[in-house]
Simulated scan of single mutants.
Amino acid sequence: MTKIKRWEGRRIIELSARQLEIMRLVKQHAPIIGDQLAELLGVSRPTLRSDLSLLVMLGLLDAKPKVGYFLGNAYQQDNAALQRLRALTVQQVQGAPVSVPDTLSVHDAVVALFTEDADTLLVVNGQMRFAGIVTPKDLLKVTLGHANAAGIPVSMVMTRYPNIVTVSPSDPVTEAVRKMTAHQLDCLPVVVDADEGGVEVVGSVTKTNVVNLLKDIVTAAE
């Protein structure tokens, strides 16, 4: 059964398996008449009447008398937004990295989080190679119950590279989103190979980057 929900003023549509198959067939064969759709699906034309009416009402299909069904404006807009997202690379959406030296104290790391309004600090070593990441949780764990913890260097509390999920500037944005979702991450370092070994951090992709990107794409499609 088709479900129509609303989220922030937009309709979220869950189509039935048959309605999805109708959309696929129309995309493949458009323009196509109802009798042809019924034959391809192995059902009667009256059986499809409610499905076709709903899809037309939602703007996913359009129909012209004596011509047939073809994809509607709503589908084309959503598809255009998806294609735009798929075409973007990490380099086009990444933000400037908030990098700190591995000798920085935990106290100063906490200050850096607030002054830079950052969710994650990217740690580099003396050769400016990517060494690890530090999150607010990392800093909280080491400071709770340890009076002298503020003076500990971040190198002692960071998660070390290469035990960190990263992306490269040429990766698709969709791959960055997949990694962030799969690993439940707030930030992905963007790294490139360095000439003399190791990797350099050149940017970061955060949840804020992704949310703003999706907002811009959705707004442009409206």
Rank of each mutant, 00 (worst) to 15 (best):
Q184K: 15
M156A: 14
T159Q: 02
M158N: 06
D186E: 04
M158S: 05
R160I: 05
A176D: 06
E175G: 07
M180G: 12
V190P: 10
D193V: 15
D171C: 07
C187A: 07
V191W: 00
Q184C: 09
A150Y: 03
P153S: 02
Y161F: 08
D193R: 15
Q184S: 14
D186M: 11
D186Q: 13
S168C: 01
A176T: 15
P162L: 03
T159S: 06
P169E: 10
C187H: 12
T174D: 04
M180L: 11
L188D: 11
P172V: 04
V190W: 02
M180H: 09
N163W: 06
V173H: 09
D171A: 13
P162A: 00
A182N: 14
M158P: 10
A176P: 10
T181N: 08
A149P: 08
T166L: 00
H183W: 15
I152M: 04
M156S: 11
A147E: 11
V191Q: 06
V177Q: 11
S170Q: 09
P172Q: 07
V191T: 14
A182T: 15
E175S: 13
Q184W: 08
R178C: 04
V165G: 07
S168N: 14
A150T: 12
V190L: 01
A182Q: 15
V173P: 00
V191R: 03
I164T: 12
P172C: 01
S155A: 12
A176F: 03
A147W: 12
P162C: 03
N148K: 14
V157L: 06
D186H: 14
V177A: 11
T181C: 01
R160W: 00
L185P: 15
P169F: 05
I152V: 14
N163E: 04
A147S: 07
P162E: 00
P162K: 13
A149E: 04
